[in-house]
Design a binder for these strands. Structure first.
Length: 227
DNA sequence: GCGACAG
DNA sequence: ATCTTGTCGC
């Protein structure tokens, strides 16, 4: 798919923080009426690195699947050198470039993207999922495996049970139990998305594992080679 | 100063 | 994120 601008993430934390504060006001927390036909999942791995150190090559992968059948429609993998270190709250500047390149190589344009990161549940309201949703101009959802910010109660024990994630007095996401007896995931709207739709869609993309299929497959794609 | 901290 | 052995449970 085509990405209009070539956005640069080659900045320093000082301006990175300003960029996030400026872009957060552009996020739309309203989901489109039409249903999602093609859903993409994206993730990044760092092959060969040791405890986050060592080689600094980022391997990004995007998997597009049919929202109904969950069949894989297309895959895209790419590797780039990253210049930004991992700093909580600034993940986009480390993984963003690689993910965007993987999207550029895509032939199918998805209707929705699920990221293995936070959406608006972020210190400045602009997690990687929101940031990339904005740059790709696509509805997006953040589905992280752990918490970045906010407080929440422990969700119920059954699949589909959830609790609200609050940050600075606002509802920024859902702590969703996708599987009984397993740690819940942190779902938050990215861009052109609302809380209810985000949680409902993620749950609908979950099969027998903890993570929804788009993200789970993207993770497998960039770590092991398989689909 | 002391924790917390997406991946 | 990445490394890695063992263990528990279905």
């Amino acid at each position: 798919m085509e990405i209009k601008k070539l956005h640069s993430f080659d900045v320093h934390i000082q301006e990175a923080r300003e960029i996030q504060r400026r872009l957060r006001d552009m996020i739309v927390l309203k989901s489109p009426r039409a249903e999602f036909t093609l859903v993409a999942g994206a993730d990044v791995s760092f092959p060969g690195s040791i405890r986050g150190r060592g080689t600094n090559r980022a391997r990004a992968g995007v998997v597009v699947l049919d929202a109904e059948t969950l069949e894989t429609v297309e895959e895209s993998v790419t590797e780039v050198e990253c210049r930004f270190p991992y700093v909580p709250g600034f993940l986009i500047f480390r993984e963003g470039p690689a993910v965007l390149e993987a999207f550029q190589k895509l032939k199918h344009a998805p209707d929705l993207v699920v990221f293995d990161a936070q959406g608006i549940a972020h210190p400045r309201g602009l997690g990687l999922a929101s940031h990339l949703g904005l740059f790709l101009d696509l509805p997006s959802i953040g589905c992280a495996k752990s918490r970045l910010v906010g407080e929440s109660a422990e969700p119920g024990p059954n699949r589909g049970d959830s609790s609200t994630l609050y940050f600075e007095g606002r509802d920024v996401g859902r702590v969703l139990r996708t599987k009984p007896g397993v740690k819940p995931v942190f779902v938050s709207p990215g861009h052109r998305m609302d809380q209810e739709t985000a949680a409902r869609v993620v749950l609908g993309l979950v099969t027998r594992f903890r993570l929804p299929e788009p993200t789970r497959r993207a993770h497998r794609l960039v770590t092991t080679g398989k689909t």
